[in-house]
Design a protein around this nucleic acid. Structure first.
Lengths: 188, 188
DNA sequence: GTCTATACCTAGATAGAC
DNA sequence: GTCTATCTAGGTATAGAC
């Protein structure tokens, strides 16, 4: 198969960023994984900052697309919330991976300003999508105990991200389920 | 003042770990901050793994002591929960810092097994403390919407840790408050 | 587009003098 | 206990040949 090296690199980088963090892999690791040399990686993504930007850009696109699919497919607020949670559960990979958003949020090495901005935008978009879900719940009554949709959205996002980190810290995906259970239980 | 160099080092290390992550500072940074040389830091803490262990050990002791003080001082479940949340809010430092527990949980560089074990123990202890708070709420009725105390504890811990990370990612402490608001609102 | 080779830097860690 | 000096490994990044 003729392949798209750029995509191969991005795939390998995303996998490593999610499992060992963005600072947890080097161009050498990437080169080993893709099967070319370090210098060739630099050809496609001159700096690691460039790589981070490409990574978050693609991720944002894919993730928001999935949210749109959920909106199109599921009509009740409860069904949308559950589908949203499944997105993260699938990303967990048995407690070995974080979603890229959290993996980058947690990165200590200075990311370029453009990447940080994209990350903030991504965060905001997801929070807004969740807010519409909780707003819908106010009228369709399919999620319990929603007072302020905006506050509920912020809370849910924090709970899910925290659950991801707890599960990864323990390398135990059941921790994620346990920490997210109260959220799931609110769906009627 | 004659001083305890070992404590000075630990203080500097804790501050740096919480603001820039455990991988985010070097012995050189530590040396600059304390005002001695790298080799002297190595004298007190031979490896960075040793340092991580000393860090989590002291933190665990201090934090659990504070929880015990809350238990002794506040009698209602609601008051205990609010006091617990204040502990994190104080640790936030305007969105610049994480609690050490999250800062280490999120570390990608391999921590020694002993440190990982202490971290897990710390996590478990805090979750158990929270569980007793929610169990009390079941009888004193001072926190709304508690079904299963254990699930409530896991959820609260995840929400608080997620809120910390969101606030730090945005360098905005109001994010913490916003993400924690539904939890606070449940205290009667 | 991919390679070899290399420059440059920072990190963790140790030896041995004082 | 603290210092200077040094080692080694690894990371990011570039030059220039193929």
């Amino acid at each position: 198969m003729p392949i798209d090296t750029k995509s191969d690199i991005l795939n390998a980088a995303e996998h490593m960023a999610r499992s060992t963090g963005f600072d947890g892999f080097s161009y050498a690791d990437l080169a080993d994984s893709v099967g070319i040399r370090k210098a060739s990686i630099h050809y496609h993504y001159p700096t690691k900052g460039d790589l981070s930007l490409a990574l978050i850009g693609r991720y944002r696109q894919v993730f928001l697309d999935r949210l749109a699919q959920i909106t199109a497919r599921d009509t009740s607020a409860a069904a949308r919330l559950l589908a949203y949670l499944d997105l993260y559960r699938d990303a967990l990979d048995g407690g070995r991976s974080l979603c890229l958003c959290v993996a980058l949020s947690v990165t200590q090495g200075a990311l370029p300003e453009a990447t940080r901005a994209d990350l903030a935008r991504f965060h905001r978009d997801v929070a807004q999508w969740l807010e519409t879900v909780f707003r819908l719940a106010l009228s369709d009554g399919s999620i319990r105990a929603v007072a302020d949709p905006k506050a509920a959205a912020q809370a849910a996002l924090a709970q899910v991200e925290g659950a991801l980190i707890m599960a990864r810290a323990a390398t135990d995906h059941t921790r994620f389920e346990a920490a997210i259970d109260t959220l799931r239980a609110r769906a009627i």
